[in-house]
């Protein structure tokens, strides 16, 4: 049964990776920017989730507020940080993003204190017995449900709404899209809003699972999410999801079986390097 347990734990973790990495892929697909600071928005989502829940007692409201606030901040990040340097070589935006990320972590530390915040009454702590001896928290189930709902909704919207079509057209060929009268700027704002809101959801969920949000909560996901989107072939949504889930599962097994020689976080990169050497275009990327 250990196999199955590890597998499910891996899927839970992979769902979180997916929510974070998806936003990163959306940004990369549109702007070719490796948006490291994305993880700072993830952490911010966690803070807002905990604070609003503690004030109002409503976890659902907290989730909603986190999505809206973080989404708007994400748009601001695009407007004030990235837009002015889009025409520069890509590493400029990358370094700017890393700097922004480190600065944000410092601001969280200074504003919210170094030790982090917890829920006063952690919601969704009940457990369900999946099969004999193996239990999942409600929170963990919620993670998987939300991931599936959010991502399917996104897939459906992008295929079936005018905005979704405009977005896909812009990703495929910005100039052509502009020629057809699509307002590229609006698509970019929308893109950052959605990406950031997804990160906020992931942040709220991680804060729930750990019952803790701390300033450095984003460090590991931030770099791991980069590994995931590269594995997924940079800019491919399907590839990103596959890579996120695969990594969650590989980590779950790897920590048990390879824990002596490699720590958990290095595993992702070992996997990344091996895949890239065999398939430089990523797991599902096209040449």
């Amino acid at each position: 049964m250990l196999y199955l347990e590890l597998f499910i734990q891996g899927i839970v973790q992979g769902s979180i990776y997916g929510l974070i990495a998806l936003g990163l892929t959306l940004v990369y697909g549109l702007l070719r920017i490796l948006h490291v600071a994305h993880a700072a928005l993830f952490t911010l989502g966690g803070y807002i989730g905990v604070i609003v829940t503690n004030f109002t007692g409503s976890f659902a409201l907290a989730m909603f507020v986190a999505m809206i606030v973080v989404g708007v901040i994400g748009m601001a990040v695009y407007k004030f940080a990235y837009e002015p340097i889009l025409h520069r070589p890509p590493y400029i935006a990358l370094i700017a993003s890393i700097a922004l990320f480190i600065a944000s972590e410092e601001i969280y530390r200074i504003v919210f204190g170094p030790f982090g915040l917890s829920y006063i009454n952690p919601p969704l702590q009940g457990q369900i017995e999946i099969f004999s001896g193996f239990r999942l928290k409600h929170g963990e189930i919620l993670v998987m449900v939300i991931a599936v709902v959010m991502l399917s909704a996104l897939a459906w919207l992008s295929a079936n709404t005018r905005t979704g079509v405009a977005w896909r057209a812009t990703v495929t060929d910005p100039e052509m899209a502009a020629a057809f009268g699509i307002k590229i700027q609006n698509v970019r704002y929308l893109n950052f809003f959605i990406a950031s809101a997804l990160a906020a959801v992931a942040g709220v969920l991680v804060a729930l699972l750990n019952n803790l949000v701390e300033p450095t909560m984003g460090s590991v996901p931030s770099y791991k999410a980069l590994a995931i989107i590269v594995l997924g072939g940079l800019g491919s949504i399907r590839g990103t999801l596959v890579a996120a889930l695969a990594l969650g599962v590989i980590e779950a097994y790897g920590t048990i079986y390879l824990g002596k020689i490699l720590d958990r976080d290095a595993l992702a990169f070992a996997f990344l390097i091996i895949v890239l050497m065999v398939r430089p275009q990523g797991l599902l990327g096209e040449k």
Binding site: Y91, A227, V230, I261, L262, D263, A266, F269, A270, L272
Partner: peptide, 20 residues
């Protein structure tokens, strides 16, 4: 970008291996 991330991975791998 792929190279930047690969080298980043090498950095994490180094730390991860040395730790153990």
């Amino acid at each position: 970008d792929f190279l930047a991330i690969t080298t980043m991975g090498v950095g994490f791998l180094f730390v991860g291996v040395v730790r153990k």
